[in-house]
Amino acid sequence: MTQTIFVAGATGVIGARLLPRLVTLGHRVYGLTRSPAKSPALLSLGVTPVVVDVFHAETLSAAMCAAKPDIVIHQLTDLPRGLDPSQMEEGVRRNARIRAEGTANVVAAVRAAGARLLVAQSIAWAYAPGNEPHTEESPLDHHAQGLRAVSVGGVAALEKAVLEAPGLTGIVLRYGQLYGPGTGEESPAGKKLPLHVDGAAAAVLLAMQANRPGVFNIVESNVIVDTGKAQRELGWRPDGVAVAP
């Protein structure tokens, strides 16, 4: 069934892998970017560009209402290219802002536009220290200090906004540490919570199909977080094979 899908963060590393799949499946796809220079690349994929800054709430809401999406996919991040260590402190703070303020604007726009489903990106390494493997019910690290506190605060705000929005089916995918095309890391070597970027894109498609609200750990095989819920309810495969409808 053809649906209208609005992807926020369309030109990010996951968006770049996800958009061609959505188009191939026959969906009408709108891609949000704040850079006009990225519009031609979106058009070449068969995606309608929407050039709006997510922090401009009224403009975002108007653009989403004009698109009239059935589903909204939130993949917005604001981290330095290649996760440059010299720029990470500022990047973590920007990313926390986009997760908190940006997500609040996305949720408001989704509700105004009447979309029924929102799938949002989170992370699988924000759990508080404790018994492992962590499940989705394990607490986040709300007592973190320093820069980690900033990051966890952004995650908590994003998840609360998505999961508690009235009249909306909210799905949060807690991704592992990405590798693969566009990430700057071609292998999972050294990652405790590895996730190939194509696996992340596949999880979005599985979540759309399952249409089950809640939080899901999306990580390849590991001993730190449990992916049993995603396997049972979404059909997720944690073996690194990107399988999706």
Rank of each mutant, 00 (worst) to 15 (best):
L206V: 12
E89H: 04
V107P: 05
A124M: 06
A41D: 12
K192N: 09
L118K: 06
R21A: 14
V50D: 06
M208P: 03
A37T: 15
G184P: 12
S138N: 06
A161M: 03
E101L: 12
W236V: 01
A66L: 09
Q209D: 09
P245I: 12
P181V: 09
G180A: 07
A189C: 00
K38G: 02
H74P: 00
P238I: 01
F6L: 05
I171C: 07
Q177Y: 09
F216N: 09
L193A: 14
V92D: 02
F216T: 05
A244L: 05
A230H: 11
V241P: 00
A124N: 08
P80Q: 07
R34T: 07
D239M: 01
P49Q: 04
A112S: 14
N131E: 13
R93C: 07
P133C: 07
H56K: 09
L45E: 11
V47H: 05
A157H: 12
I73C: 04
N211G: 00
R111I: 02
E159P: 10
N95E: 11
L18A: 11
H196M: 02
A189I: 01
E90A: 15
P194M: 05
V150C: 10
L19T: 07
L140H: 14
P213E: 10
V72C: 14
N105W: 14
G31V: 13
L147C: 05
A66S: 11
V197G: 11
P80S: 12
Y127R: 02
S122G: 10
R111D: 04
Y127A: 05
S151W: 10
A113C: 14
S86K: 14
T48R: 11
I98T: 15
L43W: 00
